[in-house]
Design a protein around this nucleic acid. Sequence first.
DNA 1: GTTTGTGCAAATATTTTGCACTTGA
DNA 2: TCAAGTGCAAAATATTTGCACAAAC
Lengths: 132, 132
Amino acid sequence: MQRMTRQRSAVTEVLADTDDFRSAQQLHETLRSRGHGIGLATVYRTLQSLADGGEVDVLRTTDGEAVYRRCARREHHHHLICRGCGATVEIEGPGVEAWAAQVGAAHGFEDIEHVVELWGTCARCAARAAHP
Amino acid sequence: MQRMTRQRSAVTEVLADTDDFRSAQQLHETLRSRGHGIGLATVYRTLQSLADGGEVDVLRTTDGEAVYRRCARREHHHHLICRGCGATVEIEGPGVEAWAAQVGAAHGFEDIEHVVELWGTCARCAARAAHP
DNA sequence: GTTTGTGCAAATATTTTGCACTTGA
DNA sequence: TCAAGTGCAAAATATTTGCACAAAC
């Protein structure tokens, strides 16, 4: 129930080529520029399916756009992301998982999920901003 | 440079009446139902201005909608939010601030900002889901 | 009286969906 | 074969913006 199509492999290939979080639109542009004919809707559908399968991480930028990334670790983890270029570092929050579950339970909440992400400006982008 | 209009006070009043995160659309509906004639655009503009002034907290739901809430504490803090009804509990992450700044700096990032939010289903919503 | 705020409608932007057509297994 | 995937255009959402008008100070 998951066919390997030309489009699906093109998407995973592009995702494999970068370490950064990218929006569906950006990925679509990249795909087109590499000569793959692919519809924007298909990019969205594929990303959603990859996300459902846990093959990519999804998160929201501060202005609500969804960004995607294939992640090295399959276990749940967190990121430090550059607002300027999307460069990403996988990080781990010591004890975050346990803390989240415990705090949630303490207030009678179920199905706890936590969002822990760090945003900043990476050294390169900071330098570029300093002397443009 | 910040006039107190009928609309602005209506918005802050509604925000004062709830402890939960609410979307601009929900707030607009509430306002209309209370008889305040107010445009949706004005609700958005007012919320943005309140957020800029640090008078309300803004965050994004998993599906990208912005939700707003007037918060008890002015200092930066975190929340445990019910996906069902928006009920919110203010929480504190012991050492989160320091941890975020330190991790960011360790990777050469500047202007570090962190997003730490817990989402779950509150007891009431869980019960409602169990026997509808 | 001037400047800021508002309403409405139109513009943006992002993501989803209906449907006829392709294609992979 | 034939269910699952795709493209395109249209729809649905969420939010922003231009502009004429109203209101606050």
